[in-house]
């Protein structure tokens, strides 16, 4: 085979490969939005129980993704879970915002929902939402336990 033909085919091959990589990065991985996400501010929220929340889980306000959970750690002094969130700079929330750990559907992903309050002041980089301003995850096992406890006390009281 002539060298020019080989060169042409190799050129086509490399271009196809790069197109595939670009497709993966832009269409599948949505690289374009990474740049947009870059400008964020960070807030912390203290929870009694974060349930199945994981890092990189979305933070939603009114169902719209406004940021992501960056890190989850345990506060050894307060015995609370601390979720560190990166919120898009475009959106600001009042200081009395209520953060709750929610699940989309029964088996869906776990996310943090923000409900805005009526305060005049806004959350800034480094703000902390104390435990009184958060609502923990609903742990299904606890609910079931409570249900059984109530049932058993009700039935024993009736006798």
């Amino acid at each position: 085979m002539k060298r020019a033909t080989i060169d042409l085919w190799v050129g086509i091959f490399v271009v196809l490969g790069l197109v595939a990589l670009l497709f993966l990065a832009l269409q599948v991985g949505n690289l374009a939005s990474v740049g947009r996400e870059a400008k964020t501010y960070r807030i912390e929220a203290h929870f009694d129980n974060i349930g199945g929340l994981k890092p990189r889980a979305p933070v939603k306000a009114a169902g719209v993704v406004v940021g992501r959970v960056e890190q989850i750690r345990f506060d050894p002094k307060l015995y609370e879970a601390v979720a560190v969130m990166n919120i898009n700079e475009k959106y600001s929330f009042t200081t009395d915002t209520l953060a709750s750990v929610l699940t989309s559907g029964l088996l869906g992903e776990v996310y943090i929902g923000l409900d805005v309050g009526g305060s005049e002041e806004m959350l800034v980089n480094g703000s902390v939402l104390p435990r009184t301003q958060t609502q923990s995850a609903v742990v299904l096992e606890k609910l079931i336990g409570q249900f059984f406890l109530r049932e058993s006390t009700a039935s024993s009281g009736g006798k």
Binding site: L18, A20, L21, V28
Partner: peptide, 16 residues
């Protein structure tokens, strides 16, 4: 070595 990552990327793209 040059072909392999390009082929793998094309494989994933074609499969998606």
């Amino acid at each position: 070595m040059i072909s392999m990552p390009l082929l793998a990327a094309m494989f994933s793209a074609a499969a998606i």
